[in-house]
């Protein structure tokens, strides 16, 4: 593994820190975009970017399995569902408007700044983090570790999670099932709409 030597050597030169800041500098604007972009569908796509950068952070933290799951489940699965939901609902209604409810803006910014300050101050004030010194490079691949844990100590929560997913699936299907009556009078309405439009 000649080539790997270089990578491990580079890893010691605090590249990790630089990567972290680059990822953070991508994640924060994207997160702002998610909240503030006037086009909701666009903010849906930006959310994918946020998740991708967070997956990058996971890779930095040596959590390869979680990073990959993040890409697989969050980055692609959940966000795509969100984007599709956005496209199915009428996103045009909102574009061009201020995405925020005006009455809440002041309060919300106050609360969010407060939350950040609280968390940050509590982080700073904590003196004795129970840090461990084991280098995680020498450990077995974390996918094995996770698998072992899920099958032994955490078997019960694991099962519960699967039941939760099943329940969510069934619930979602029940909720979003279209009632057949609602489609009945769509035809004449459509006709009206076509008649009324420009036929250029």
């Amino acid at each position: 593994m000649e080539s790997l030597n270089l990578l491990t050597a580079l890893a010691h030169v605090n590249v990790e820190q630089g990567f972290f800041y680059v990822l953070a500098a991508i994640a924060i604007p994207l997160a702002y975009g998610v909240v503030f972009d006037r086009n909701v569908i666009r903010s849906g796509f930006l959310l994918i970017g946020v998740f991708a950068t967070i997956a990058g952070l996971f890779f930095l933290l040596q959590a390869q399995f979680l990073g990959l799951s993040q890409i697989l489940i969050y980055g692609v699965g959940i966000t795509l569902v969100i984007v599709i939901a956005l496209m199915l609902t009428n996103a045009r209604q909102e574009t061009g408007m201020n995405p925020a409810l005006p009455a809440n803006v002041g309060l919300a910014s106050f609360v969010s700044v407060l939350v950040f300050t609280t968390i940050y101050l509590s982080l700073r004030s904590a003196e004795d983090w129970p840090l461990k010194n084991e280098s995680s490079l020498s450990l077995p691949p974390n996918i094995e570790m996770i698998g072992k844990h899920l099958m032994t100590y955490y078997a019960l929560p694991f099962e519960f999670a699967s039941i939760l997913l099943l329940a969510a699936l069934v619930g979602a299907v029940m909720l979003s099932k279209a009632e057949p009556a609602s489609l009945a009078n769509a035809g004449d309405e459509a006709e009206q709409a076509v008649d009324g439009t420009d036929r250029v």
């Binding site: 909240v35 609902t89 909102e94 408007m97």
Partner: peptide, 27 residues
Amino acid sequence: MVRYLSLGAVLFAIGIYGMTVSRNAIR
């Protein structure tokens, strides 16, 4: 570690702001 936790806090705060303020339910 504190860097990562702080980044988490920043994103969390942004999320709180968006959740409180959004006009669109999906947002």
